[in-house]
């Protein structure tokens, strides 16, 4: 173990000493296995981004421990201008409050937010429940079970927040991913689930409300939680680019410009259209403030729901 640590430390040292200058190659860390939902977006983003930046880039999939292993790898490269991470919401805004990690929100130089999709509260199409009120009422007699794609994920957090802010009686049952959770919803093992439009459309479910500040285009008849009298229930699944902290302002600006140009490109827009992700750009400063706010909100939810001390 010490040997591993020593060699890892040595490798990092080499990385930081030799590559303090921007090189022609860029590592893009994706903290999930190849072929996952985040990976697909990252792989469509990568060619356009590297073209804009004028470098050759390589996607490195470093998966494990709810995407924190790959994220830690980015944080670990302090001052290295040749590595960035294509990060999911959970690894940046939930996991640091949930577990003891070698990184925190301040370990990064924030580049941009690329996409963001609001989450919906949904039930199976055959369900006789048509509104949140009805859901809350029926849960009093016999508590519902809600699924998620794992403990500490956004579907889990959104539902945990809802049970805190409303009278809904529901318990969490985590699955190994959205797919198995959908199978369980189909078999009535769980009754409710919070997830994005992609899941809603692909599995043909019934949305009851949306975790967003205003109604969503295409779902004009789905109310927001605020309209239903519940404050501060906004959850979305987003992704963004971060670089390690300690890189030069010049490099950070170059990343930010390339990112902006990429998300505004026709190619990326076409991809987003096809794959059901919504482009929702935030620049470096806004993204940083956004993540800081989400960290606070999520920390409170985790605490209220009894998931952390």
């Amino acid at each position: 173990m010490t040997l591993l640590r020593a060699s890892l430390a040595a490798a990092t040292l080499v990385a930081t000493t030799t590559s303090a200058v921007a090189a022609d190659t860029l590592d893009i860390v994706v903290p999930f296995a190849a072929g996952g939902a985040t990976d697909i977006v990252a792989r469509s983003f990568e060619p356009i981004f590297s073209e804009q930046l004028g470098v050759t880039s390589v996607i490195r999939n470093i998966a494990g421990a709810s995407a924190t292993v790959g994220t830690a790898e980015v944080a670990d490269n302090e001052g290295n201008p040749n590595i960035i991470g294509y990060e999911p919401a959970g690894a940046l805004s939930i996991q640091p409050s949930l577990k003891d990690l070698p990184y925190g929100p301040e370990s990064f130089t924030y580049v941009c937010r690329t996409v963001s999709n609001p989450m919906f509260l949904m039930v199976s199409k055959d369900s006789d429940i048509d509104s949140i009120d009805q859901l809350v009422e029926e849960s009093q007699e016999y508590p519902f079970l809600y699924g998620s794609s794992g403990p500490g994920t956004l579907p889990h957090l959104a539902m945990a927040a809802l049970t805190v802010k409303s009278d809904l009686q529901a318990q969490h049952v985590p699955y190994s991913g959205s797919g198995p959770a959908m199978n369980a919803l189909d078999g009535n093992e769980i009754q409710v689930m919070a997830d994005t439009e992609t899941i809603l459309e692909n599995y043909d479910l019934k949305p009851l409300a949306v975790f967003a500040e205003s109604r969503v285009e295409g779902y004009e008849d789905v109310p927001t939680f605020e309209e239903l009298g519940m404050q501060d229930l906004e959850f979305s699944v987003w992704q963004g680019i971060v670089a390690p902290k300690g890189i030069s302002q010049e490099r950070a600006d170059a990343f930010a410009d390339a990112c902006k140009a990429t998300v505004e490109s026709d190619r990326f827009e076409t991809f987003a259209d096809k794959s059901g992700v919504s482009i929702d750009y935030l620049g470096a400063e806004d993204f940083k403030a956004f993540v800081a706010r989400r960290v606070e909100v999520n920390k409170q939810v985790l605490k209220d729901a009894g998931l952390t001390e």
């Binding site: 190849a34 072929g35 939902a37 697909i40 599995y203 991809f271 096809k274 794959s275 059901g276």
Partner: peptide, 19 residues
Amino acid sequence: VVTAMMMGAMVIHGITPGV
């Protein structure tokens, strides 16, 4: 994992897997 990767490949080509 394998079929998830196939679904990913379908998404890239504009086919949305689903019901």
